[in-house]
Design a binder for these strands. Structure first.
Length: 441
RNA sequence: CGGGGCGUAGCGCAGCCUGGUAGCGCACCUGUUUUGGGAACAGGGGGUCGCAAGUUCGAAUCUUGCCGCCCCGACCA
């Protein structure tokens, strides 16, 4: 992409509304614009990152055996009345009336809808297990939206739903998602720690929140330090292997302040105790027949009797992750994107537009990086160098190639690695090889 | 939902206390000189001062009501 042909409204000054780093940088880097409280327009740069995150989530869900679908944003109140949640949900649910005075709502989640859909087709235990997911915009009328997209009212969420014949089978589904979540966050350059979450009236040990550690996190967290160093499990093809990972990760202490047990935490060796702040980026839980029972979602088992379907749901806050990743990856100059979610792989800075040799070198690099699928952003604007450097640092592309007349006389360009700040002079060919090599890893 | 604050040009702000019809920086447009880390000079465009009512000869400024947004807390992916 040529910057002269892109829509990237960067701001030099920080908008007064933004207090935390991710919100500041997302506004300054021209990623989002607030339309009203907790509702954002996703500008091209922000939208690109959002889609990359969504795609990683999609790929890992598919690997876990989940099947993608799409449910509507607007739901009929009828499903919610059947489960009793229409009254239980409270003012966080945005209620709408259509021209025929029918009660609708903008969905805050989809358990009721998918349970209704599922029961209408499935009759036999032979049709189970099933795991379905979608990635869809949701709305919760938060009392106090804040922190930009991290706590918006409208947000993009991936939610998956599992359907099993009994609690033991549901546990197998849960492990699949548990492992998939560890791999999903690792691919985004994040270390997400699963922490025990409140299971409410369901009980049991099957509810976990996934948190990334960041100073600006909303929750206080306590965990064993070793959890923060564990590598992702990667793809596992047996239930036993997945269960082993689940046991490994949940055997060490990890809890948010609501579930914190100071006595248990005290049993963790002192040098392994970590108390920090975290951002919740996912939540998975098993809820059994909470919806299937009131909705009569049943299948006939091998015993000839009807059984309530045992369900679980698994959420990833996709739009929240955009902010969450920035909280974990930035410096005073701007964002530092992990390669996997960066909106462009590298930036090319033309320091002297109009100079024949510089223009030609930039075009050459642009063509070669494009051919290598690096998806470069070429700053071909007629701005001064300093402005280009500052802008490129702000939007945080992993690598920058700086092309100017001075270096070009020696046949060199400068390659800057955004994360380390390291700069090296090299030939154009070496620069291309270096960057394509970094992305091949 | 409790407590606090803000609304003046695209962005960041001053002016309000003590009423006299709006200003600064950045951004933007034109020109000249510049050009390797957010250039300098000169000229220029852009605002029903959130909305409404009231007080007054006169309201950005005082009064009342409404709307919007933010921050702290409680709550949530």
């Amino acid at each position: 992409m040529r910057l002269s042909n892109y829509f990237l409204p960067v701001l030099k000054e920080t908008p007064a509304d933004a207090t935390i780093a991710s919100h500041r940088f997302m506004l300054r880097a021209g990623m989002v614009k607030q339309d009203s409280a907790g509702i954002y327009i996703w500008l091209p740069l922000g939208f690109k990152v959002l889609q990359k995150i969504e795609q990683i989530v999609r790929e890992e869900q598919n690997k876990a055996g989940a099947v993608e679908m799409l449910m509507p944003t607007i739901q009929s109140a009828n499903h919610w009345k059947e489960t009793g949640r229409y009254d239980a949900y409270g003012p966080e649910m945005l209620r709408i009336t259509d021209r025929g005075d029918r009660e609708l709502l903008y969905g805050p989640t989809n358990e009721d809808m998918i349970t209704d859909m599922f029961r209408s087709y499935v009759r036999s235990y032979k049709d189970l297990p099933q795991m379905l997911y979608h990635s869809q915009w949701k709305f919760r009328d938060e009392r106090r939206p804040r922190f930009g997209v991290m706590r918006g009212r409208e947000f993009l969420m991936k939610d998956a739903y599992s359907f099993d014949i009994d609690p033991a089978a549901a546990r197998v589904s849960y492990y699949k998602q548990f492992v998939a979540y560890l791999n999903t966050y690792a691919r985004m350059g994040l270390q997400a720690v699963p922490m025990k979450a409140d299971t409410g009236p369901i009980g049991g040990d099957l509810s976990h929140e996934f948190l990334i550690l960041a100073e600006t996190g909303e929750s206080e967290v306590f965990c064993h330090k070793d959890l923060v160093d564990m590598p992702p499990p990667g793809y596992l093809d047996t239930d036993e292997a997945r269960e082993a990972v689940f046991k490994e990760r949940t055997s060490l202490y990890a809890a948010t302040d609501e579930m914190h047990d100071a006595d248990e935490f005290a049993k963790v060796p002192a040098d392994k105790q970590l108390s920090a702040r975290g951002i919740e980026v996912g939540h998975i839980f098993y809820f059994g027949d909470k919806y299937s029972a009131p909705m009569n979602a049943q299948v006939q088992g091998p015993d000839g009797k009807n059984h309530n379907i045992m369900m679980g749901s698994y959420g990833v806050g996709v739009s929240r992750l955009v902010g969450g990743i920035i909280e974990a990856c930035h410096d005073e100059n701007g964002i530092i994107w992990p390669k996997s979610v960066a909106p462009f792989g590298a930036g090319i800075i033309n320091l002297r537009k109009g100079d024949e040799a510089v223009d030609a070198a930039c075009e050459d690099i642009y063509a070669k990086l494009s051919a290598a699928n690096i998806d470069p952003l070429y700053d071909d604007k007629d701005d001064r160098g300093g402005q280009k450097f500052a802008r490129m640092d702000l939007i945080g592309l992993p690598y920058q190639i700086v092309v100017g007349p001075r270096g070009l006389k020696e046949g060199k360009v400068e390659v800057k690695t955004r994360a380390s700040g390291e700069k090296q002079d090299m030939t154009i060919e070496a620069a291309i090889n270096f960057i394509t090599g970094e992305f091949a890893e």
